[in-house]
Each structure stands twice: as structure tokens, then as C-alpha cells.
Design a protein around this nucleic acid. Structure first.
Lengths: 158, 158
DNA sequence: CATGATTGTCAGTATTGCTGATGATTTCCT
DNA sequence: AGGAAATCATCAGCAATACTGACAATCATG
């Protein structure tokens, strides 16, 4: 997954204590999305943790790497994370030397958040496992089906 | 959506302060699911709040209504909610008279959680708005596409 | 009968998202 | 030019949340 947001997600249960979802609830798209999210978040967050950060940080790194430096507000708007939550997120990234705040040359209210070389390195590692994970998760589906799914989720995400 | 889980989800931003998701991140299924979840959860939770409870409670009610009384552990396993979180969830439901704990006739360790008439009534109202919401959200997609999406999410949910 | 597993509960901890405020700037308006 | 309003980052504090690790009561197993 790319990014998410800082929030506490209930863990996807271990194999031993997990049972199939109740069919009566799987009729609801919202329930399905919620539980799919729970699983993917757990899987991906474990990988992030191995690299020393977490899912929300990974999302910020990804965005910074793709789109270049931007202000915290921009980050928050794009990732749909509250501005005040973004402060702490960038604090963490800075503390771990994965990103840093730079002064904006023209607007002194703004910090331009910038990914560091260490951040790029960590992100690259994350992308490797992330893409492998997605590939495996989506292996049961055809290319067309994946396209449909993607389009649907994008629509649902608003 | 039926149910979810007790946890704090960042709100889907209001129209005014929302911008399209960054394309670079929408390539990731995990990100898409996360953001779709964020939106649906916000929408559905607002409806639940109008009825005096919240999404996780709605999920429990739904399961109880469909599958009959069961223990808290069973509820938790089926909904993939931690056992200790379930305690508080049932506390809330009982306080609001939407469900109640009954003694298990054969195993005195267990409470059978049971939906009340008031709970059934609230659930019925929720289902009306829930189904209307899903119908609207899925209106851009054909029946076959919806089937594919459902199957995909079910697979991803594990 | 003794050991171990299961169920519900609770206290305590660590996180999390957000509200509302502040100070520093910039932009807009006249 | 000058003042009002908007913008940005930040912070304190609040209300939820998930989970760990304990506990007592009860049941299952050998």
C-alpha cells in the first residue's frame, strides 16, 4: 500500500485464530473493504516496521519521492491526513533522517519537506516488497479484472 | 457495510478541502483500499451516529441478527475484533438496550449475546440507508463488475 | 482429580485523530 | 500604504482505540 494515515488499526488475526468472514456480512461492500484493509494494512505495516518506520511514513516518503518536496499541508491534502497529524508524521521522518524540513525560499511560513538519500533507500526497499506483495495478492485475477477493481476503488475513494 | 471494528479512522475530508488522490499512489491497491475505506467508513459512521451508535456496533448487530445469539469470542472471531475490544462493544450495546447478555444454559463461562427488539429496529433502519448508499456508490458499475469487485475484496480480505 | 484450556473481565499502556488556540507570515482589499 | 483576512506550522489537551498481561470462574481432558 502506499500511504495511509496515522491511526490505530486492529491487527489481522494470525492463521490459527482466524476463520472465514461470515457470509451475511460479506454482502456489504463496506465490510469487505474494511476487512481487506485490515489485512493489507497489517501485512504492509509489518514490512514497514522491519525497515524502521510504518505505513503512514511510507506513504509520505512515496509521495515526496514521486512529486518532489512540498509543504506539510500539501502532503496532508494529497494523502487525506489531518494537518496536525502531519506534524508528528514529519517529526518522526525527520528524527529517523528519512526526510527533512527545509525553508521555503519565497514563503517563510512554509517548510518544504524533502526526502533524504536514506529515505530514498528505505523507500526503494519498501517498494520491492510492496510490489511483490501486490503481485501475489492479485495473482488470482486477470489483467482486465485488476483494472476493474482499481477503477472501482478509485471511484469509491472519491 | 456492515461492520467493522472499534478503531479511530481519520475522517474523509469535506468537499471543500479535498483534492484528487495523487496518481502515483493510486497505483497501489493498498492505498486505494485504504482511502476507499476511509470514505465509506466516514459516510457510514455518520449514518450510524444518527441512529445513536457507530459502525462497529452496527456490525455486531448485523451478525447477531443474521446468525443468532453467540458468545463474545465468536463475535470477535467472526468480525476479526480483539476479544477485549468486544467486551466494551457489548457493554455499549447493552447500555443502549440494543443487545443483551444472557447466561448460556450449558456453559457458565459464556454469555450469549442477543439482539433486542430495539436492536432489530435500529438495524433495520441502518440497513435501509446502508443499502441505498451502496446502491448509489456502485451505480457506475455493471453487475458483472460488481461481482468481480466483491470477489476480489473477499480474496484480499483473506 | 489434577492439569490445562477457555471465557469474560479489567487495569494499564501506548497510539491515534482532532479541536481549538497561538505566532509568524503572506495575501488581499481599499 | 495600511489593515483585515487568510495561510502555514505548531502545540496542548482531549477523547477514542487496540492491545498486553493479568485474573477468577468454569469447563474439558486425561
Amino acid at each position: 500500500m502506499g500511504a495511509d494515515f496515522p491511526f490505530s488499526m486492529p491487527r489481522f488475526p494470525e492463521d490459527a485464530e482466524r476463520e472465514p468472514l461470515p457470509e451475511s456480512l460479506t454482502r456489504y461492500m463496506g465490510f469487505l473493504i474494511a476487512k481487506a484493509h485490515q489485512r493489507l494494512w497489517t501485512l504492509f505495516n509489518d514490512e514497514c516496521k522491519r525497515l524502521g518506520f510504518d505505513v503512514p511514513c511510507g506513504g509520505v516518503l512515496h509521495l515526496l519521492d514521486e512529486c518532489g518536496s512540498m509543504s506539510q499541508q500539501q502532503l496532508g491534502r494529497k494523502l487525506r491526513i489531518d494537518r496536525t497529524s502531519m506534524v508528528k508524521l514529519v517529526d518522526v521522518l525527520e528524527e529517523k533522517k528519512l526526510a527533512k524540513r527545509r525553508d521555503h525560499p519565497e514563503d517563510r511560513r512554509i517548510y518544504l519537506v524533502e526526502i533524504t538519500p536514506a529515505g530514498k533507500k528505505a523507500l526503494a526497499e519498501l517498494q520491492v516488497v510492496g510490489e511483490a506483495m501486490e503481485k501475489q495478492l492479485l495473482s488470482p485475477f486477470s489483467e482486465d479484472e485488476v483494472k476493474t477493481i482499481r477503477r472501482a476503488l478509485l471511484t469509491l475513494a472519491g
